[in-house]
């Protein structure tokens, strides 16, 4: 769909103390690829409009889609979406958008996902799309976040416990989870040098997060020997 269409907020679920996932019902939704985003358009009583882009954080569930939002301090749109926008109310959306930072379920090579903070949203959409398949390539998510209580999608990620083909590693930068053995700190080369996902195995790498994080991690992946055209990036901030 190329134009704007009206969607309804059917539920809002908690991802962390501050972040929320908005579940939107979009009549006629054509489906989307994991990693794509939508534009949302908000309208004030006086006709003023604001538009923002958000990654879709899950595969489509019929005509329902999900975006996950971290409220930005003093932000115009994100605090409204997280705290005020009432369930049952409408919002305009446009999409799905984006054709590069996507994972297609017919791909067969291993997939290495590297997330910084709320950059995990499109990567978890890819991971969930993989989990929807009975069989598929190995997936590994390296999830960098400040502290355990800031983790998003906890239930989905905890459900991976015991699996070896789809797994998650956490890289805490300020405060580690109890029992974690990795020293606290930013992502290092050894965090991204993972059996099954080395350059020799030619994985497809997706990196998403704040600009400085993406620059840092993409540089590590290239230095490890991954071909630059196998490293897809999405930056924000």
């Amino acid at each position: 769909m190329s134009g704007w269409t009206v969607a309804r907020l059917v539920a809002r679920t908690k991802e962390s103390d501050t972040a929320r996932t908005l579940h939107l019902q979009v009549p006629g939704w054509p489906g989307h690829l994991a990693g794509q985003h939508i534009d949302v358009r908000l309208t004030a009583d006086d006709g003023y409009q604001a538009v923002r882009s958000y990654s879709l954080s899950a595969p489509a569930d019929g005509d329902q889609v999900a975006i996950s939002v971290q409220p930005a301090p003093y932000g115009e749109v994100s605090p409204y979406l997280v705290e005020e926008f009432p369930e049952g109310a409408d919002i305009e959306v446009r999409g799905p958008l984006g054709g590069w930072f996507v994972w297609r379920p017919d791909r067969t090579e291993p997939v290495l996902l590297v997330a910084g903070g709320s950059g995990v949203a499109p990567l978890v959409a890819m991971l969930r799309a993989r989990l929807a398949l009975p069989d598929g390539p190995a997936f590994r998510l390296v999830y960098s976040l400040r502290r355990p209580q800031e983790r998003w999608f906890g239930d989905s990620l905890d459900a991976l416990d015991g699996r070896s083909d789809v797994a998650v590693d956490y890289a805490y930068t300020r405060e580690a989870a109890p029992g974690a053995t990795r020293p606290v700190g930013r992502v290092r080369q050894e965090d991204l040098l993972i059996d099954g996902f080395t350059p020799a195995q030619r994985p497809l790498c997706f990196v998403c997060g704040p600009t400085a994080f993406v620059e840092h991690c993409a540089d590590i992946l290239v230095a490890l020997g991954h071909r630059p055209d196998r490293v897809r990036t999405e930056r924000f901030g």
């Binding site: 004030a44 604001a50 409408d90 919002i91 901030g237």
Partner: peptide, 28 residues
């Protein structure tokens, strides 16, 4: 039809003739 984004208010209205449609200004 339900209300469209009820309670939403502008916080950073930009000078009208400098901002193309659908854009917002950033300092970064």
């Amino acid at each position: 039809m339900a209300a469209l984004t009820p309670g939403f208010r502008a916080r950073r209205r930009a000078p009208g003739d400098r901002l193309p449609p659908g854009q917002f200004t950033t300092e970064g």
